[in-house]
């Protein structure tokens, strides 16, 4: 399991190369913006029929992270489904996959702007979740402390030896962490975007995901 360890609000956390956040003390795995059912929603709204393998692929990767960490709690930080219809019409194979993953562990669905309401799948539905010193919600709030959120799909670009390498990235400063999107079909918002620059402190760090995740000063 490749990850970057860091201390946040007095807690030891690990940013995994997959884009998930691991909290060893609480045996909690946190992922954001799964956007399950995105290809289905796309075509339902009259768009092109994208390869319908995104939900399957996202859940494959999530299963791997759960397996590796032996997580006791899984927190999905919102926008787990591309919309509520996508949640309702999720294929049987994906539903039973989720049930299997949920067996024997606590599962928390945080509401997102794409999925603002309960869905007919197991687990607990919450607007936000507090555990120990940390608060988990979908969208970062100005002035919040010890906050872990998603929503923005941050990505960051590193330039080295004439190449540009852009990866989904965790953004971390003293008061908040913004997680990258975990879903297979999810684009990214550059860390240099005004909104993200406004949210993150001057000394914020970006942790680039990938085989060997690395931290860099957040590109502004």
């Amino acid at each position: 399991m490749n990850g970057v360890k860091f201390s946040f609000a007095g807690q030891l956390l690990v940013a995994l190369g997959s884009g998930a956040l691991w909290w060893p003390e609480q045996k909690t795995l946190c992922v954001s913006d799964l956007h399950l059912g995105k290809s289905e929603r796309f075509v339902r709204r009259g768009g092109p029929a994208l390869p319908p393998y995104d939900s399957h692929d996202t859940l494959n990767r999530l299963a791997e992270d759960i397996e590796q960490t032996k997580a006791g709690t899984v927190v999905c930080l919102g926008d787990s489904f591309d919309d509520l219809d996508a949640a309702r019409s999720l294929a049987e194979a994906e539903r039973s996959r989720i049930s299997t993953l949920q067996a024997g562990r606590r599962w928390i669905w945080i509401e997102g702007n794409h999925d603002p309401g309960p869905i007919e799948l197991g687990g607990t539905y919450l607007a936000e979740w507090r555990c120990s010193a940390l608060v988990f919600r979908h969208i970062a709030q100005l002035g919040a402390k010890s906050e872990i959120s998603g929503h923005f799909h941050p990505k960051a670009t590193l330039r080295a030896a004439g190449r540009l390498m852009t990866r989904p990235a965790f953004l971390v400063d003293d008061s908040r962490i913004i997680l990258p999107a975990y879903g297979t079909y999810t684009g990214g918002l550059r860390s240099s975007d005004e909104t993200l620059k406004g949210l993150m402190a001057e000394d914020a760090v970006a942790i680039l995901t990938g085989k060997r995740p690395r931290s860099i000063p957040m590109p502004r």
Partner: peptide, 10 residues
């Protein structure tokens, strides 16, 4: 490359 450059930047 990524590892080396990230170290340098930090």
């Amino acid at each position: 490359l990524l590892a080396e450059e990230s170290d340098r930047l930090l």
